[in-house]
Amino acid sequence: MSTSWFDQAIGLAAGVLLLTSVLLVWKRSLAAAVRSLAVQGVALAALVAVIGIYEGDPQLVAIALLVLALKGFLLPWVLDRSRVRIAAVREETPLLNTTASLLALSLLTMLAYLVSRPFLTLAPGPTSAAVPVGISLVLYGFLILTTRRHAISQLVGFLVLDNGIATVAFLTSGGVPLVVELGASLDVLLVVLILRVLTSRITAEFGAADLDDLMELRD
């Protein structure tokens, strides 16, 4: 197996991850957002698989399958169900308009590169070179969380953030210890489920899943 193949595969997966997140920021349609998220999950799984195959680590390949199931299918599916149930179509007016958001993305990306400098100096290589993508994802996810009004959008943002962390984890160290990985995945799943339940309750209670209605608790 040649190194250049590995390089390209990593690059490809990272590119897809980045692209999907940019799309997530760009597009306002919730259905599209969930689809992009699914693609991102698949890309992440692919990334894990590539690393697993390259390092000849069957455990990592198994984890890739797990990631594929969870992030590629299960979570997007849960999200989609939720979206359909509360009949949400699109994010109407994000707090930051699309242009500004995209400009913000570029700034965040620069910051991500700045932050990831230690990896490049520590262990130069294709995986290290892709670390900024993971950090970017985290920051993008946070941006989506902060600027989007719809409950589903926030869920999406949270998952992007989580994907970013997972990306960093796999790129830097081939994933954290298994027990932690499992625990973390379970936690994420549970959080998403809880948020889903809350979303439907909010919709029932407030008549919409617009988070700006949630402003009764204040000082």
Binding site: L145, L161, V191
Partner: peptide, 13 residues
């Protein structure tokens, strides 16, 4: 409900 949402989102993030 509002508190729970804020709690879970802010806390998990």
């Amino acid at each position: 409900l509002e508190a729970a949402w804020k709690y879970v989102v802010l806390g998990s993030v």
